[in-house]
Amino acid sequence: MINERIIMAGFGGQGVMSMGQLLTYAGMIEGKNVSWLPSYGPEMRGGTANCNVIISDSPVASPIVTDATAVIAMNRPSLDKFEPSIIEKGLLLINSSLIDRSAERDDIIAYDIPANDIANELGNSRIANMVMLGAYLEATGALKKESVIEALKKVFGERKAHLIPINEDALDRGAQLVKGSSCG
């Protein structure tokens, strides 16, 4: 039984919303009950953005995530805001390329993922979100990487299909960091 309740947060433009949509889409492909709820309002214009994703074997009750099983923090304000929302033994993924601190809590499982550095190494700074998503998939085993790739194909269509391999590389690099880490 899975019941993943994820908060993804960062600056507008870091791909937080699309990362959430991809994961939601992948969950749907695997036949799970899913929901994606964005923050909306004036704060989205150039400010912080976050979305709540739920992937569950049972029907989704509230689409609002209050007790998060995982938080993906792409920047420092997001980490400060959402670290307290994680349940005990929950997962925290920190984009250490842009965040100058590690997890404050010791009752959760936290990984520092230099997502922007890896994305730059791969040659596209815009796929930092996919590095984080790869780390999430590896750390939780909630969904298969293949489902995310399938979702990407649907979202990208023919025109952007050439971007699939680099996205897959980013997912793999994120996963490797979690695999190779002593943490957790």
């Binding site: 949509q21 939601t24 749907m28 899913v34 929901s35 709820l37 964005p38 909306y40 689409p63 609002i64």
Partner: peptide, 10 residues
């Protein structure tokens, strides 16, 4: 409400 309008579900 805005939540229902903005959220995505299958």
């Amino acid at each position: 409400d805005g939540m229902l309008g903005q959220m995505m579900e299958p």
